[in-house]
Nucleic acid binder design. Structure first.
Length: 761
DNA sequence: CAGTGAGCGAGCTTCCGCTTGACTT
């Protein structure tokens, strides 16, 4: 039996540390937090000084029981991370294990090395209650905000929605960026380029430093320079340098893996976790760019031996983020000598970029020689500029690649004349800000100091699973641009088609996100303010320094926040759904509204409060918004559904526009009529489409039982269906001879379909 | 693929942050 029990947060860390300690120590892990507010209910006693009611988390009961057992008759050392959350974990451990926080030994270390741990054990302290209190304030604030705001959304917008300090700001960022893109008016201008030649025929590519306004001005300008001569007025050579980036933090790793490898934020974290568990890299949830002394020495040693001393440059990077807690090192390989690892290909790739980034960060800057040549036009004030760049020393680029082709200009002198055969002016358009990808949204949140490394990936998942955002590929649209060319003294104009606006795997907000954001910005502006987190962080700071009690801070916040929650109960749903009165139906005087519904913008005729007659609904006409739609357009939509006529056997044919476009309906059968218009489709057209569909269904049907169970031919082979559940028929059975009993058995065997997102890891 | 949107009303949803498995298709 050992004398000491040392508790860390992560089991992988426990395993490593145990090796560094004498046989007197048993090392166990808490697997993160062990106690928390129960999931159900607020569990904060507002009337009694915001007293939180903690409980052991359900998935940690066994961990706690095990730790309790291990703590018996042993000296306990609490070695959770050195940050707010880590301190709270240490304190919760004292509470759950029945230890005295005033005397239980608390230690911290920043590197998992023998000297660091030995040193930590030599200098124990006790739990820092002020730091714990700052965490309690953080926890309580998040619970109050999340659990008081979300129910308002259930009532006013849609059940199951959520709001919170982090996710609501993330959604707001998406909504505002999307609106910026929608409102953006691209401005066109003309970029002028040419390739000059000197007397010896060497080429000098150059671009006009100013852009020309429009086609008219550009033509005029090109006309004038027909007679111009071109003279070099300045040749400037200057040294330049490119420096390596700091080692990876969670957020920069996610960005780089997204950019270079196309990984989602979640995928990157799963792969990094495996690399960490295999001992290949240091901890992957960190906000620090710091490298341990041992790592710095190892890097210098490796670089000097492999590439030579001139490539080595030891650097310690300062973490820029003000809210960083720096409990861990940067993400780096545990052994730089391992340039590659074995294992799954995606893990290898991720390891490779971590290795490169770490080594590069300790290498010399790349040195370039830049040349700039200014060329004057004899009869115009604009100037051409030619740029050359030659790499003189590759430095860190040797490891990460990314070398640009040298752009070598011939030897040129001021006063020298240049010739040109052809000058091209191409129409270019200004572009709106880019949509956020998962990784760029994480970067933005980090810049704002919102969220922590362990929550970036879950936050991105949450806003998608709550229906606030969708990750989609956006198809580009074709655009005609003009290209003017001056050659042999004549100007020719040509139209060129380019694709613009195409975007891959970008986060796009849904209509629900717009409604919720507008609601929160209007009534809870404080919470969704971009600097709300930064402001509360300064309050937490005060608590950490013992300048204020955490309950006082929360009380002062709640005093302003809660009345807004109360007040919001009176906000009518009509207002939240942004109902616009378009006018009245001339037939019966009923009001017509454009507003947001569950599935986006829609039209409503009649009042929702009217108990005698429920309102009618119609989809928004294509391309219109609740602001732009007119009364006439809306009335036109209410002519649907329209009775087109009957089928040959007398069944009614209805035509309408649904979620997936125009369709006709006969009984329970729906037939898409794209591209026909449901308002003008004739009975003959409708009958034909319906007959075609019936023929198609007949070809699909193999058997039909009286109970309604059908045996059908599907794209994946024959299957049985009862209308809700589908079950495949196994290859041995003949679908045409399947009995009703067998069909029922197949359906009973088949589990209810669970829809889940594909996980590509 | 699935053709909605109100309201009725029971019973449900929800936050952020720290850590890994235990579960299926």
């Amino acid at each position: 039996m050992t004398k000491n029990l040392l508790i860390v947060e992560s089991p992988a860390k426990a395993k490593t540390i145990e090796k560094f300690l004498s046989e007197d120590y048993t090392v166990k892990s808490s697997f993160g937090h062990i106690r928390d507010l129960p999931k159900k209910g607020l569990n904060i006693d507002i009337a009694h000084n915001f007293e939180p009611k903690y409980e052991i988390s359900s998935d940690k009961k066994r961990v706690v029981a095990d730790l309790k057992q291990a703590a018996r008759n042993r000296q306990v050392w609490l070695a959770s991370d050195e940050d707010r959350e880590g301190e709270a974990i240490a304190w919760h451990l004292t509470q759950a294990l029945g230890l005295d926080p005033k005397t239980t030994k608390r230690i911290v270390f920043h590197e998992i090395t023998k000297p660091a741990i030995t040193d930590a054990i030599a200098h124990p302290r006790v739990v820092d209650q002020q730091l714990v209190d700052a965490q309690q304030a953080r926890r309580t604030l998040d619970r109050l905000v999340g659990y008081e705001l979300s129910p308002i959304l259930w009532k006013k917008v849609r059940t199951g929605l959520s709001a919170g300090r982090v996710q609501s700001v993330a959604v707001r960022l998406l909504v505002e960026r999307e609106r910026e893109i929608k409102d953006f008016k691209p401005v066109s201008s003309y970029k002028v380029t040419t390739i000059f030649t000197d007397k010896k025929g060497h080429e000098v590519p150059a671009e006009l430093t100013t852009k020309l306004k429009d086609a008219g001005q550009t033509k005029e300008w090109l006309n004038k320079i027909k007679a111009a001569t071109f003279t070099i007025t300045r040749v400037e050579k200057k040294p330049g340098r490119r420096s390596p980036s700091p080692p990876f933090t969670t957020s920069t790793l996610q960005q780089e893996a997204s950019r270079r490898l196309g990984f989602s934020v979640r995928q990157t974290m799963v792969l990094a976790q495996r690399l960490y568990e295999a001992g290949h890299i240091t901890y992957m949830r960190t906000d620090s760019t710091n490298l341990s002394d041992i790592a710095l020495h190892a890097a210098a040693d490796y670089i000097t031996k492999t590439y030579g001393g001139q490539y080595s440059q030891t650097r310690q990077y300062k973490t820029k983020n003000a809210t960083a807690q720096e409990a861990h090192e940067a993400i780096r390989p545990t052994d730089l000598k391992k340039t590659t690892i074995r294992g799954e290909q995606k893990q290898q790739k991720l390891y490779q970029i971590i290795w490169q980034r770490t080594v590069a960060s300790q290498m010399a800057a790349a040195k370039v020689e830049k040349t700039e040549v200014t060329i004057d036009i004899s009869n115009q004030s604009e100037q051409f500029l030619a740029k050359g760049e030659i790499l003189r020393f590759d430095g860190f680029l040797r490891v990460i690649g990314g070398k640009k082709e040298d752009m070598i200009l011939p030897e040129l002198e001021s006063g020298q004349n240049l010739d040109t055969k052809r000058i091209t002016a191409t129409e270019v358009f200004s572009r709106p800000s880019a949509r956020y990808s998962e990784a760029t949204l994480v970067r933005k949140l980090e810049d704002l100091g919102i969220g922590r490394p362990s929550t970036y990936a879950p936050t991105i998942s949450t806003i998608q699973s709550r229906g606030y955002a969708e990750k989609i590929d956006i198809e580009g649209t074709d655009r005609q641009i003009t290209e003017l060319t001056l050659e042999h003294g004549t100007i020719t104009s040509k139209q060129v088609t380019v694709t613009t606006g195409a975007d891959r795997a970008k986060l796009v907000p849904t209509p629900i996100a717009e409604v919720v954001t507008d609601f929160l910005v209007k009534h809870f502006s404080n919470i969704v303010d971009y600097d709300f987190t930064a402001r509360v962080e300064t309050d937490f700071d005060q608590i950490e320094r013992g300048k204020e009690s955490w309950q006082k801070m929360i009380a002062s916040f709640y005093k302003d926040f809660h009345p807004l929650v109360k007040k919001s109960e009176d906000i009518p749903r009509q207002e939240v759904s942004q109902a616009h009165l378009l006018g009245h139906d001339p037939k019966n005087g009923e009001p017509i509204y454009a507003r947001y519904g569950r599935y986006g913008p829609m039209l409503q005729r009649g009042e929702t409060e009217n108990k005698d007659k429920k309102p009618d609904f119609a989809p928004m006409p294509a391309g219109q918004t609740i602001e732009s739609v007119t009364l006439e357009q809306a009335l036109d939509m209410f002519t649907l559904p329209r009775i087109v006529g009957t089928t040959e056997d007398g069944q009614e044919i209805k035509a309408n526009i649904g979620r997936y476009g125009p369709y006709i309906q006969v009984g329970q059968t729906f037939v898409s009529i794209k591209p026909l218009d449901p308002r003008t489709i004739t009975e003959t057209e409708a009958r034909k489409l319906f007959r075609d569909k019936q023929a198609q269904d007949a070809a699909k049907s193999i058997q039909e039982f009286s109970s309604g169970i059908k045996v059908l031919n599907g794209p994946y082979g024959p299957y049985v269906t009862d209308g809700k559940k589908n079950a495949r028929i196994n290859a041995k059975q003949n679908p045409a001879k399947l009995t009703e009993k067998q069909a029922k058995e197949l359906l009973a065997l088949h589990k209810t379909k669970i829809r889940r997102h594909k996980q590509s890891v």
